[in-house]
Simulated assay, not measured.
Amino acid sequence: MKASASNRQTRESAAKVFPVTEPAELLPFLLKNVTNAGRNSIKSMLSRGQIAVNGKPETAYNYQLQTGQTVTLSKEKVIEAPPLIGLSILHEDEHLLVVVKDAGLLSIASDKETDLTAYRQLTAHVRADGNEFNRIFVVHRLDRDTSGVMMFAKSEEVQQLLQNSWQETVKERTYVALVEGMLKKPEGTISSWLKESKTLKMYSSHYPNDGLHAVTHYKVIQSNRNFSLLEVSLETGRKNQIRVHMEDIGHPIVNDKKYGSKSRAINRLGLHARVLSFVHPKTGALLRFETEIPKMFLNPFREGFTAK
């Protein structure tokens, strides 16, 4: 145990991390924060690749830093974070990561796949400064075939703060869903009690209080006789909630064979987590992240569209 603690101290002393609290150019930021090194020394560190922004080496003096980024100063050349596959970072600070995940990428490992996951890639990302003790922690998940915004914590403390106050902390969690058919009502609410079958499929129970209560609100964005594009907001966050509720009302999500879809109008599941807004568990700031509607979700509403 003593040897492990000693190794950790050695690694931590070898790299210094400075959070960016306001926009600034990189060189002036370093001159202000690195008090034990002169201008020429800092320029040399930049040229040698010892300075990283969010884990990626940066050599430009005038690189424009943004609030929420982290600058790492290492005694050795910074190990560049491996490229992210099916994943991009929207926000990173010392407490959490907000990312957008592509459809087809697992959030965390399953029995069948342990390598290419959002969790594994982001773990490698936060360890790119050479500190093998850096970790990330799962806050919530997206299904493998669902794309969109999700969040990870950088400490167990922040993970617990977010999970224990999720209903109060999350101010907006909005999806877009491409579903089969034209809905009769332009907006509505679906409420049921969800259970999981022996085959791991979620379903709505016919009996009140039998399972986990789930509430989904929807609003039609665009529709024709074959398809509808919906804005969907969650009052609760149950497993497969939107997919079950869309099947319940007779408008399953496109390409969701598990939950009743017969259409393959697009070559992926028609569900995307578009907006995530929450109160930062440490700073108290209200953060909001919004992504574009996937372009292929709009294809069924274009003139001349034919489903394959």
Rank of each mutant, 00 (worst) to 15 (best):
K2T: 11
S4H: 14
A5R: 15
N7E: 15
N7K: 15
R8V: 09
R8C: 05
T10E: 15
R11A: 13
R11D: 11
A15E: 08
K16D: 11
P19L: 08
V20D: 00
V20R: 04
E22G: 05
L30F: 11
L31S: 08
V34Q: 11
V34K: 07
A37D: 14
R39N: 13
I42Y: 06
I42F: 08
K43F: 04
M45C: 06
L46R: 01
Q50G: 05
A52P: 05
K56S: 12
Y63R: 14
Q64V: 13
L65T: 11
T67V: 02
G68D: 04
G68A: 01
Q69T: 06
V71N: 08
E76P: 06
A81Q: 08
I85L: 10
S88K: 15
H91V: 01
H91T: 01
E94R: 09
L96S: 00
L97T: 02
V98K: 06
V100W: 02
K101M: 04
A103H: 10
L105K: 04
L116C: 07
Q121C: 08
E132I: 15
E132D: 15
F137I: 04
V138C: 02
H140I: 05
R141L: 06
V149P: 02
V149R: 05
V149N: 04
E157F: 02
E157M: 03
E157T: 14
L161Y: 04
L161W: 04
L162E: 00
T169R: 12
T169V: 13
R173E: 06
V176M: 07
V176K: 04
V176I: 11
E180D: 03
M182R: 12
L183N: 05
K184S: 13
P186Q: 13
P186V: 08
E187T: 04
T189I: 12
I190V: 13
W193V: 09
L194T: 08
S205E: 11
Y207K: 15
N209K: 14
N209A: 12
D210N: 14
G211N: 02
L212I: 12
A214K: 04
H217L: 07
Y218H: 03
L234D: 09
E235W: 09
T236D: 01
N240D: 05
N240F: 07
V244F: 09
H245V: 01
I249S: 02
P252A: 01
G260A: 06
G260W: 00
K262W: 07
K262E: 11
R268Y: 12
G270W: 04
R274H: 13
V275F: 08
S277T: 10
S277I: 00
P281E: 00
A285M: 07
L286W: 07
L286V: 11
L286R: 09
R288K: 12
R288S: 13
T291S: 13
F297L: 02
L298V: 01
N299M: 14
F301Q: 04
R302I: 13
A307V: 12
A307Q: 15
